[in-house]
Computed example of a mutant assay.
Amino acid sequence: MVQDGEWGRSIVAQLREHGRALGFSQIGVAGVDLSHAEPGLQAWLDAGFHGTMGYMARHGLMRARPAELLPGTLSVITARMNYLPASTAEGWQAVEWQGLAQPDTAVVSVYARGRDYHKVMRQRLLRLAEFLATSIGPLGHRVFTDSAPVMEVELASRSGLGWRGKHTLNLSRDAGSMYFLGEIFVDVALPETEAASAHCGACEACISACPTGAIVGPQRLDARRCISYLTIEHEGPIPEALRPLIGNRIYGCDDCQLICPWNKYAQRSELADFEVRGHWAGASLLALWAWDEAEFLRRTEGSAIRRIGYERWRRNLAVGMGNALAASSADAPALRQALSQALTDASPLLAEHVAWALAQGLPN
């Protein structure tokens, strides 16, 4: 039975107030019936758009069935947390585009320049769940933030945090898309908050801006072509035809968000956790290539970047360095020397990308 009426509304209001104190930008509540989303999810899997992310297929339609993932779940509390660093200047999108136009500069996705969001969100979601338990008594719950087969964007949209943009990300009129999503599955039925309506209209800027054409239609992403997937999730060789399109993006890609008109309303985070760590500010490809594995681990401690490991890190850098050579980089001699020296003890995966990089910028 849904705890509606004055009691239910009061609990949701308290969750929102306490959520703000914990650094969340917005709190909503969704139901657990996502059956209308199952056909689209199955079609996406059938098309193979999940690439080598085998866990997507293994979990299948469980993503659309919260009560199967955690039996007894009656409601899902949704949360968003802004991650644009507080120090971000006005006109930040233009600054990001400038970085992408400098082939010797290594570009890391904005969300990954501070502390690992999994850690930040999880700790605060747990505290929000504890607050709810003190308010209503013992309850079964589990928190998630990009950590289980959960349809995060669907739940966020159903609960009013935003709508699913054509780039497939959750999008808000008040905050654009520069925020993380998290959920608390609970075994108490709370009143659902009103879903958000879509406001993309005829705009398809994100589709046109995708460097690799990964957004194959409105709200339809082929992960196999997505730079975020290729540089983070994909463990093997990056398809050769896509390497030149990656440019100097060594971890993730923000292009579909940079071009989105709604991100002029992107909100700065109140949390110091998401401030840019110094070594990501304008770092050169050569400087990052010089890190040995020990330094990579030290520099990425507490960062989401660490999870890709040193080999994939070097693979991504090699692609960026090859693209810098193709762009007639002023650092070309140093880039070639650094790449050549790495060939002697490179793994097969890295050696393939280094050899490809060295071939760039040479006469055909």
Rank of each mutant, 00 (worst) to 15 (best):
H353L: 07
A266V: 11
W280M: 07
A318Q: 06
G322P: 04
Q341V: 14
R277M: 12
A272M: 10
D345M: 13
G322E: 05
D331G: 01
G252E: 02
A272E: 15
G282K: 00
G309L: 08
R268T: 14
G309K: 00
I246F: 08
L242N: 05
S340P: 02
H353Y: 04
L285H: 09
R314P: 07
W313S: 04
L285Y: 01
Q267D: 09
A272F: 07
N263W: 06
L258F: 13
N364C: 00
S347D: 05
E293L: 01
A294F: 03
A332V: 10
A332H: 10
A241C: 01
S347T: 15
L362M: 13
D273K: 09
I259K: 07
N248G: 02
W280E: 00
A283G: 09
L325G: 04
A304W: 04
Y265R: 15
A281I: 14
W289A: 11
D255K: 01
E275N: 08
I308F: 03
A334V: 11
R336S: 00
S329H: 12
W289Q: 11
I250R: 01
A342D: 12
W262D: 01
R299L: 11
A355W: 12
T300S: 10
Y310W: 14
Y310H: 09
G252N: 08
D345C: 11
W291F: 08
R268Q: 12
P244L: 11
K264D: 14
L317Q: 05
I259M: 06
S340N: 12
